[in-house]
Amino acid sequence: MPDSPRRRRLRAAALLAALALPGLGAGCGGSSGPVTLTVLATSSLTEVFGEMGTAYHQENPGVRLRFVFGGSAEMTDRLSEHAPADVLVTADAASMKEVSADLAGRPRTVTHDTLTIAVGPGNPRRIRSLRDLRRPGLRVAVGAGSVPVGRYTRRVLANAGLTVRWTSEEISARAVLDRIRTGEADAGIVYITDLRSAGIAASSVAIPADLNVTAAFPAAVVGDSGHRDLAGAFVSWLLTPAAQKLFRKYGFPSPPADRG
């Protein structure tokens, strides 16, 4: 029997009513509410990404960001074990290369950092330079050679022509900083932005610019992401003026002009 105009109107009204019910709509069985992107990120970005998550959602109401923070090595291990993720952000390119097969597209440098010597509040051991880190009995914490801050630290010490006998090797800059904050180490080398996050719990001794290094923080879309386009949009957003302003607010300088 052919449809009458009345039957067609009744079916249309029923469909509209169904779409208005909670949990329905958004394309036949899709969820209502925003998409959540999982971002695996180095712990040195904890504070700035906390604010960026709010800013990004305000600009893109259909997307929420869920951050998982830890050392870069820990984050790449998670990715290698196929933990659900959409974006990876590490503290150096070498970490990205270790998981290049798990990424979609070329990583893009989104910000930079540099290093400083972290010491106890007020610098009780009167450390003045990198050379002082060689003092007998001084407890020095550094990043392990397999993690970004450890690789950068070894480059700084090589630039200075120094051999330092450290007392502990840590999995991240935040872990090095924790040694200082708890009094378990007298000095350590960390990113300057990490030092800022410690507030009055630690003091800083500058490393001369000609001995220091620039840490590059790359971001990339994860190949297994179920939302590659949205993940790529977030990575691109990290290079926008709005995002770069937030990076600078937390002490990170802007990346080079080549946006990739």
Rank of each mutant, 00 (worst) to 15 (best):
L115W: 02
R139I: 12
E51Y: 09
T90K: 02
A83T: 06
R196M: 08
P5N: 05
S129V: 02
G199A: 09
V190T: 12
H82K: 12
A55S: 14
D113I: 12
T36M: 06
F67T: 08
L88G: 08
S236Y: 00
R228E: 08
R174E: 14
A187I: 01
R151Q: 14
P148Y: 00
R174D: 14
R228Y: 03
R179F: 02
G33P: 11
A231I: 08
D132C: 09
G226N: 09
N212V: 12
A231T: 04
R78S: 13
A41H: 03
N159C: 06
G143P: 10
G260E: 09
Y250C: 10
G50V: 09
G199H: 02
L24E: 02
A198G: 04
A104P: 01
Q58N: 13
G62I: 05
K245R: 15
R125F: 07
A185H: 11
L79G: 04
S44H: 04
H82C: 12
H57N: 13
A198N: 07
R126Q: 15
I207Q: 01
A73F: 01
R64N: 14
G143E: 03
R125C: 04
L162H: 02
L177D: 06
L40D: 00
I117T: 00
T182N: 13
A91T: 04
D77S: 15
G71I: 01
S197I: 03
S129Q: 09
A175K: 02
A185L: 06
A233W: 00
G50F: 05
G199I: 10
A41Q: 07
R174L: 10
I171W: 02
S31V: 14
P255R: 02
R151E: 15
A85P: 02
E51N: 14
D210T: 10
V68L: 12
T240W: 11
T114Q: 10
S236E: 09
G33T: 11
L24A: 13
F247A: 04
G188A: 11
G62L: 09
V176R: 01
G232V: 07
D3N: 10
E74W: 01
R135V: 09
S80Q: 09
F234W: 04
A118M: 13
A233K: 09
G161C: 08
R131N: 07
V235A: 03
T240D: 13
A101W: 05
A220G: 12
R165G: 06
L239V: 02
H82G: 08
A55W: 00
G70N: 06
T38Y: 00
L65N: 04
T76I: 14
G53A: 14
Y152H: 06
A160R: 07
A243S: 14
F252H: 13
G70H: 05
A215K: 00
F252L: 10
V142M: 12
R139L: 15
S203Y: 05
P34C: 10
P255W: 00
Y152I: 03
G62D: 13
W237S: 04
S72M: 03
